[in-house]
């Protein structure tokens, strides 16, 4: 299926900040101390960053962050312990080779998950799918939430659906007393979400499933302006509700893979 892009292309350097920081620290260490110090700094940075990746995994349950943490940890360890590179402490060359093997294995796993889009925050795909068959119609925006219908599910089904949506980075759930609110997070917004989830949700679109089967949708101004054209706002909210109801139905029928397939079919890039 061909999808014409309805969202603006946004370029953000947020995702590159860790890599840029690492390069800058490495360069500074090389310039002011020497090449081995540069490698040691990069090694320490990688190990510290693996801790950050584990923290993200604890927040999302997404496996790619475990793969990233292993990759970063073993690379850091390799830099710090390789007999020819190390300035801190070196290990036997056989152990170093084993660490390198672990590096390669975790890199392959990480790349596999990356290219399968398991590491991708899929908010942009969600908004693209909601806008399919939505025609331009100006001046329709309102900040009110919209009741988007009803569907059947049990409380435990909703909870496990929420975990699925979170671990696949489709929409981040917020657990409330009477409902679970899903907030789709785009790739370039991921850090904003991770560092301040409560503040993040205040100005973002959400889809709420209450424990009585009612679904409510609210599309925020920020996300609405993310579309190239002023789309029919009512239809957009309705489609968003229908999309999530469909996702829930797939999940209840044990066909959760269809959710991922549908999102992949949008065909957005790996980093967009």
């Amino acid at each position: 299926m061909y999808f014409s892009r309805k969202q603006r292309h946004e370029f953000s350097i947020t995702g590159f900040i860790p890599a840029i920081t690492c390069i800058v620290l490495y360069a500074l260490a090389v310039i002011f101390v020497g090449p081995k110090a540069g490698i040691a700094v990069a090694g320490v940075f990688f190990i510290l960053y693996s801790g950050f990746s584990i923290w993200i995994f604890s927040r999302t349950g997404n496996l790619s962050y475990i793969a990233a943490a292993l990759f970063q940890f073993f690379f850091g360890l390799f830099f710090l312990t390789h007999p020819k590179l190390s300035v801190i402490w070196s290990v036997d060359s056989k152990i170093s080779a084993l660490i390198l093997l672990m590096c390669v294995a975790s890199t392959i796993w990480l790349f596999y998950l990356f290219f399968k889009k398991r590491a991708k925050w899929k908010g942009r795909e969600v908004f693209e799918l909601a806008s399919v068959s939505t025609e331009p119609q100006p001046d329709g925006f309102t900040d009110r939430p919209r009741p988007a219908g009803r569907t059947d599910y049990t409380r435990s089904e909703l909870s496990s659906f929420a975990k699925f949506m979170r671990s696949h980075l489709i929409a981040m759930p917020y657990f409330e007393n009477e409902r679970i609110v899903f907030v789709p997070v785009k790739m370039d917004d991921s850090f904003s979400y991770l560092f301040s989830p409560e503040k993040f949700r205040q100005k973002r679109s959400w889809i709420a499933f209450d424990f009585h089967g009612n679904i409510t949708v609210n599309i925020s101004k920020i996300d609405y302006l993310g579309y190239k054209e002023e789309l029919s706002f009512d239809l957009l909210c309705e489609n968003m509700g229908i999309l999530f109801i469909r996702f829930m139905e797939y999940y209840r029928k044990g066909e959760a893979d269809r959710i991922l397939y549908e999102l992949d079919e949008v065909g957005l890039g790996l980093t967009s």
Binding site: Q137, D139, G140, F141, T142, R144, P145, R146, P147, S232, F233, D234, L235, C237
Partner: peptide
């Protein structure tokens, strides 16, 4: 009632229908 008020680009609906919804 106002929670179910149709959006600006939606088809207008009678007050009775909105009350029922």
């Amino acid at each position: 009632f106002l929670f179910h008020l149709p959006f600006p680009t939606a088809e207008p609906v009678t007050i009775t229908e909105i009350m029922t919804k």
